[in-house]
Nucleic acid binder design. Structure first.
Length: 225
DNA sequence: CCTGGGATTTTCT
DNA sequence: GAAAATCCCAGGA
């Protein structure tokens, strides 16, 4: 009941609603036999072409194409030349909107339960070939003081990822995931969390978008403790 | 506690 | 050519 993958109808709704509902849900990343799972604790909404904080305010470009696509797909972009950010596209096709995943609490790293499983059908691959050759993707820098960086023997595997760049670094998500269908993907998806709203949702202004005119003051950032 | 700068590359003007 | 939906580290209060 709780560990159920979110389907398309979950994302095909008003973005603010989806953003708030994503809090407490679990982001799941399967890498070979390894499974990384963590609770979403912080998100931001980017809605439409008028929202000056959204990349889609530039209109339909090569970069924003994914945002104009169907809901339930990942929109990945590189930021400041060093980090990737993960968004989930929301609302109906042709309407550009997405939820940026800014914070996650990792509480599980386990092994994939289902082993042999037909590789599935999809493999369109972005036109762009051979990525990964020199992507900064994983740990461009070794941080010494990360809380819980080392899982103490017998201790809980708990890490707090406070920032969109850290989330992608930890989940090993790079630009090849742009356009990934997280409703059908076997590498990245989102599952139901605990009880609906055990948490109090806190609202605030979005981070790092002071250039967005009046849109800078929208309380479209949501987080829980 | 806070502030400021450097890293590094894609994207759009 | 400038700016960017960021992060980390150093230095000062």
């Amino acid at each position: 009941m709780a560990n159920k993958r979110l389907k398309k109808n979950f994302f095909n709704k008003p973005t603010l609603k989806v953003a708030k509902e994503l809090l407490g849900k679990y982001l799941v990343r399967e890498i070979g036999r390894r499974v990384i799972k963590g609770k979403i604790t912080e998100v931001e909404a980017y809605i439409g072409t008028k929202d000056l904080a959204s990349h889609a305010s530039k209109g339909r470009t090569k970069r924003t194409e994914t945002m104009f696509g169907p809901p339930g797909h990942a929109y990945i972009y590189m930021i400041y030349g060093m980090y990737y950010c993960l968004n989930i596209v929301t609302e109906k096709k042709e309407f550009p909107a997405a939820v940026l995943i800014r914070g996650i609490e990792i509480n599980q790293i386990s092994l994939a339960s289902r082993l042999a499983k037909a590789p599935a059908k999809r493999a369109p691959r972005l036109g762009r070939g051979r990525a990964n050759l020199k992507s900064p993707s994983f740990s461009p820098r070794r941080s010494s003081g990360e809380a819980g960086a080392e899982a103490p023997a017998g201790g809980q595997n708990f890490r707090k990822l406070d920032g969109p760049g850290k989330v992608c670094r930890e989940f090993e998500i790079d630009k090849t995931f742009n356009g990934e269908d997280i409703i059908n993907s076997n590498k990245l998806w989102i599952e139901g969390g605990e009880e609906a709203n055990l948490h109090k949702i806190i609202k605030s202004k979005r981070i790092g978008i002071d250039y967005a005119g009046g849109w800078r003051d929208k309380l479209w950032r949501f987080y829980i403790d």
